[in-house]
């Protein structure tokens, strides 16, 4: 019996989608198994959830254009791929949350959708990073022209991803309540040091060598400080989206942002090395 010929194009598309699902799972599983995110879905204001999703789409499209789970040749293809990544991530998150018993018939349609939607952004980032991080073409794909805006963008992706892991947890706020302003200043300084060390001092693969042109003060001014500002602003945004800042005074907000920006800034630095 002759087997049916397999269209190599379809085979490749299926493989890419499988990788995207694997990436979505790998990047979102810790969050899918985090209790606070299940509850956030029940009470997050729906307009904030919509805002979060819509504000993330440009980031996903840009990520698809730069990295993506398959090679893109233009913006329309990048938009299409990012939408495919969102669809695959939605299905992946739905199946896992159902298997974990989080999604049940006790929830109405609104809450069921919100429970999956709140997980969509990190899962979609994972789906889009699948090719660069899990694919065999990694080495050749990483030969991309470096640009300042690209580096800042990748830092934002890394900061958003790691911040998302921590922002919904109660511990972020509890730590901010326990610490003094002196602790807060020290955490800020340590965050900057770690960010700078990761990329410029520790000699990691993907890190940058300091040169006569790129001296330590210049690297700190042009890369580390902007990276920290991006991390802090994204931390503020996520904490606000999740309602963690409701009723808080500016001082309490500043502590929470610095605590949240610690993992975010490490994520930003790591993204520059890895992506």
């Amino acid at each position: 019996m002759n087997s049916l010929p397999v269209d190599p194009h379809n085979q490749r598309a299926l493989r890419d989608m499988g990788r995207a699902a694997a990436g979505a799972l790998l990047f979102s599983l810790p969050m899918l198994m985090t209790m606070e995110l299940w509850y956030i879905a029940l009470y997050i204001e729906r307009w904030k959830l919509l805002l979060f999703l819509f504000s993330s789409f440009p980031l996903l499209i840009l990520l698809s254009r730069m990295i993506g789970f398959e090679k893109t040749t233009g913006w329309s293809e990048a938009i299409k791929d990012s939408m495919v990544a969102v669809g695959i991530s939605f299905s992946t998150c739905f199946v896992i949350l159902f298997l974990l018993g989080v999604l049940s018939s006790d929830l109405n349609l609104d809450n069921l959708t919100a429970a999956v939607a709140v997980q969509l952004v990190p899962a979609s980032i994972g789906a889009l990073l699948a090719r660069s991080q899990l694919g065999v073409e990694k080495a050749e794909d990483n030969e991309r022209p470096e640009s300042y805006s690209r580096e800042l963008f990748l830092m934002a992706v890394g900061a958003l991803f790691l911040a998302f892991n921590v922002a919904p947890t109660e511990e972020t706020l509890l730590i901010s309540y326990k610490i003094t302003y002196l602790h807060t200043l020290a955490i800020l300084a340590v965050s900057l040091l770690i960010m700078h060390g990761f990329v410029f001092s520790l000699g990691f693969a993907g890190g940058r060598e300091l040169t006569d042109e790129l001296t330590t003060p210049r690297a700190f001014l042009f890369f580390t400080l902007p990276g920290y500002v991006i991390s802090a602003l994204l931390s503020l945004y996520l904490l606000w989206i999740f309602g963690s800042l409701d009723g808080l005074a500016p001082g309490a907000i500043s502590k929470a942002v610095v605590v949240q920006a610690l993992p975010a800034s490490i994520g930003a630095a790591a993204a520059r090395l890895i992506l």
Partner: peptide
């Protein structure tokens, strides 16, 4: 240069605020 200086100003202002609170 613009992004670097703007970031330095923001971080410096934030540090001043935290130091004042401390």
């Amino acid at each position: 240069t613009v992004v670097g200086i703007l970031s330095a100003v923001l971080v410096f202002a934030f540090v001043i605020f935290l130091a004042h609170q401390a």
